[in-house]
Simulated assay, not measured.
Amino acid sequence: MAASLQVFMKEQQQMLDEALKESVERIQAPADLVDSMKYSLLAGGKRIRPIFLLATLSVLGVDLNKGKEAACAVEMIHTYSLIHDDLPAMDDDDYRRGQLTNHKVYGEGMAILAGDGLLTHAFHVLTNPSHDVKPHIIVDMVNELSRYAGPAGMVGGQVADIQGEEKSLTPEELRYIHEHKTADLIVCAVRLGAILAETSQEKRDDLTQFARHIGLAFQIQDDILDEVGDEKKLGKQVGSDRENKKTTYVSLYGLEQARAFVASHIKQAQDLLTRIEPQSDILFELSEFMVARES
C-alpha cells in the first residue's frame, strides 16, 4: 500500500470510528439494543465504502468534513447488511472480523433489531449534517442511498444470492448478484461524494462506471480469498463458498481466470479515472489496494 494511501486511510478510519461511536451512543434506546448495534458497528474493518466516499470528495476538492455524516450512514447500512447476512436464515456464520457474529452474542431477535436500528438510524444521520449542506443535496443523497441499498440494489442482490444457493448459476446471474449485493453500495458511496461536490451529471455517470468496476473487482477478490485466503487475516472461515456449493467466479472460471477478471476491472476503472479526473492519486491508489488486499 502506498504511504500516502496508508496515511489517508488511517486518518479517515480514526475519524469514522469516533463519529460512529459518538452517533450510536447518543441514541436514547434500550441499552441492549445500543450495545448490539455498537458491537458490530465498532468491530473494526477497513471502512472501504465510506473511505471511497471521502476519497471522492478529496479528489473533487471538497472539505472531507462535509461528507462525515454521509460516510457514517453508508457504513451503518453496510454493517446492518452484515448482521443480517450472518443470521442462520441466510449464511449462518459464526465469526465476522475475528469475533463472534452478532446473533451468537445477542441472540437472533436482538441481531435482527440491531440491523434494523442501524438501517433506519443511517437516514437520521444523513439528514442531520453537522456542516452546511443544501437541503436539495440531502434529498438527493437520501434518494441515492435508499435506491442502492434497497430492493433494486443491495437487498435485491442478497435475494438473488439466497435463491442461487446450491444451484449452478450462469455468468449473467452471478454478475447480477455481485453487481447488486456488493458493488451497489460502493457505487452509492462514490455517487454520494459526487453529489456533495455538486458535479455535473456527466462526471457523476463516469464515476458510477468507475465505482462499478471497483465493486465487481472487490467481490471477485472476495471469491478468491474465500478459496485461498488466510483465515487469521480474513477473520472468518475460508472455503465456505465451496462447502455451501455456491457459484463463484472461482468455481465458474478457475482461480487464474478469476484473478484476471479482477485485474481487468481494476484497469478499466483506472482508465476511466484518468479520463474523468487526472489528479486522482487517492482513488487510483485505492483501486490498486483492491487487487493487493488479503482481507
Score class of each variant (00 low, 15 high):
38 K>C: 09
271 D>I: 14
114 A>N: 07
206 D>R: 15
270 Q>W: 06
146 S>N: 02
205 D>C: 05
31 A>P: 02
70 A>V: 08
63 D>E: 14
111 A>C: 04
54 L>G: 09
146 S>Y: 00
138 I>G: 06
233 K>W: 09
6 Q>K: 12
226 D>Y: 08
111 A>L: 01
119 L>M: 11
183 A>R: 10
280 S>K: 00
201 Q>D: 15
136 H>N: 14
89 A>T: 13
8 F>Y: 14
198 E>N: 15
58 S>F: 10
63 D>G: 07
69 E>C: 07
131 H>P: 11
212 R>L: 15
291 V>S: 12
178 H>D: 05
256 E>G: 07
34 V>H: 06
161 D>C: 03
138 I>Y: 10
65 N>T: 13
254 G>V: 05
98 G>K: 09
191 R>I: 13
272 L>Q: 08
124 H>W: 12
66 K>M: 05
3 A>M: 08
290 M>R: 02
81 S>C: 00
13 Q>L: 08
16 L>H: 05
151 P>M: 14
195 I>P: 03
253 Y>Q: 11
175 R>C: 13
193 G>H: 05
2 A>C: 06
287 S>F: 07
280 S>F: 01
273 L>P: 01
124 H>M: 13
186 I>N: 00
5 L>V: 10
44 G>D: 05
50 P>V: 00
109 G>Y: 09
54 L>K: 00
203 K>S: 12
111 A>D: 10
3 A>D: 14
66 K>D: 05
197 A>T: 07
100 L>P: 09
139 V>Q: 14
294 E>R: 14
34 V>W: 02
234 L>F: 07
105 V>C: 06
183 A>L: 00
285 E>S: 05
119 L>V: 00
8 F>P: 10
270 Q>H: 03
106 Y>S: 12
147 R>S: 11
200 S>E: 04
266 I>L: 02
165 E>A: 08
219 Q>V: 03
205 D>K: 09
172 E>H: 05
140 D>Y: 05
212 R>C: 01
141 M>R: 05
163 Q>M: 14
108 E>M: 02
270 Q>A: 11
125 V>W: 04
103 H>P: 12
182 T>C: 02
229 G>A: 12
269 A>D: 08
74 V>I: 11
195 I>S: 01
40 S>K: 04
237 Q>Y: 01
95 Y>H: 15
233 K>E: 12
272 L>F: 14
254 G>Q: 06
95 Y>E: 08
53 L>E: 07
200 S>G: 15
61 G>M: 02
118 L>T: 08
42 L>Y: 07
34 V>T: 13
92 D>A: 09
61 G>L: 07
78 H>K: 03
233 K>M: 13
100 L>S: 13
